[in-house]
């Protein structure tokens, strides 16, 4: 972008530019930057409730010795490592199938698969909790189909509870990501696929060699967004486990731990602020690595 930075044109550009962006910057400054700086200041304090005093790096030291924090961190990373790839791959496959104009009823399929996105996080968590109840519809269906002989302890076994959370998030967000890929795919000239097909390139190779490279910017974008979402996971776990992150902290996430430190346990706002900064740092690192990985492969 070339433009004059001096003289009246430059100033004209500047004044108008600032006027257009000022409202948002003001709001973000007031309601995000100011509180997050305040939060940083709090993270160097410790104490009970309102009786806080300066504690230096004591909170950071405490992180290392806190098994619950380690557990919440591991859980959050597990969700991220397992759930995000499953969802992205599933969304990509569905998008590339639905991009084919010869599919009968593709509008219907697209709408159906996107539908979960209209539910609120609270509503679908409540729904899933009912569906995955010990005698609920999922277990009884699986039993009828002969898949299982005794009910799966979805909400009461540490492993299955994690699986349930992953199923729930995948249900809610796959369609959302799929729409992004579909939109991007429609910008790709279909004749590329036709040529490849005529040349005898099999469907799987067309997917890995044409679709994925062309969609890379969108995949990157959705991956970063999903990473941020997963690391901040709260509503689902809160409503599925009655705010506890159980059983035995198996579903506890960092955000839920922060919530517990603030509202359920003896309130220690300083330590809670420190844990919240762990999320900030993690998101920053992961986003950086994802951009870095995408750029490396470009070379």
């Amino acid at each position: 972008m070339v433009h004059a930075r001096r003289g009246s044109i430059g100033r004209y550009y500047d004044v108008n530019g600032w006027l257009f962006v000022a409202p948002v910057l003001g709001l973000i400054g007031l309601f995000m930057i100011y509180p997050i700086v305040w939060s940083l200041w709090m993270s160097f304090q410790s104490g009970r409730g309102m009786m806080m005093k300066f504690a230096g790096f004591a909170n950071i030291v405490r992180l290392w010795n806190d098994p619950v924090f380690i557990k919440a961190l591991t859980n959050t990373m597990t969700y991220f490592v397992v759930q995000v790839p499953i969802m992205i791959v599933l969304a990509l496959i569905l998008a590339s199938i639905l991009n084919n104009p010869r599919i009968v009823g593709r509008g219907l399929f697209r709408t159906a698969i996107f539908l979960p996105c209209v539910t609120s996080l609270v509503a679908y968590s409540v729904l899933f909790k009912g569906m995955f109840a010990p005698d609920g519809v999922v277990n009884s269906t699986l039993a009828t189909l002969g898949v299982i002989s005794s009910p799966i302890p979805w909400l009461t076994h540490p492993f299955w509870a994690k699986v349930l959370v992953i199923i729930a998030i995948t249900w809610r967000w796959t369609g959302y990501n799929m729409i992004f890929y579909l939109a991007a795919l429609q910008n790709i000239d279909r004749s590329i696929y036709e040529v490849a097909r005529i040349d005898g390139v099999p469907a799987w190779a067309r997917f890995t060699h044409i679709t994925i490279p062309l969609l890379k910017p969108v995949i990157l974008f959705t991956t970063v967004i999903s990473t941020i979402g997963t690391l901040q996971l709260f509503d689902e776990v809160y409503n599925l486990t009655e705010g506890r992150g159980g059983p035995s902290n198996a579903t506890l996430t960092l955000s839920l731990y922060i919530y517990n430190l603030t509202f359920r346990f003896m309130p220690n706002f300083g330590y809670a602020a420190t844990v919240s900064y762990v999320i900030v740092v993690l998101v920053a690192l992961l986003a950086f690595f994802q951009f870095f990985a995408a750029r490396e492969r470009d070379k």
Binding site: R48, V68, K71, H157, P158, R244, G246, P247, S248, N249, N260, R264, F265, M266
Partner: peptide, 17 residues
């Protein structure tokens, strides 16, 4: 005491073990 919630969470966490 003041930490019953914390202790209770710790007990719950160990019940499966």
């Amino acid at each position: 005491g003041v930490f019953t919630n914390e202790a209770d969470t710790a007990v719950t966490a160990q019940l499966p073990a």
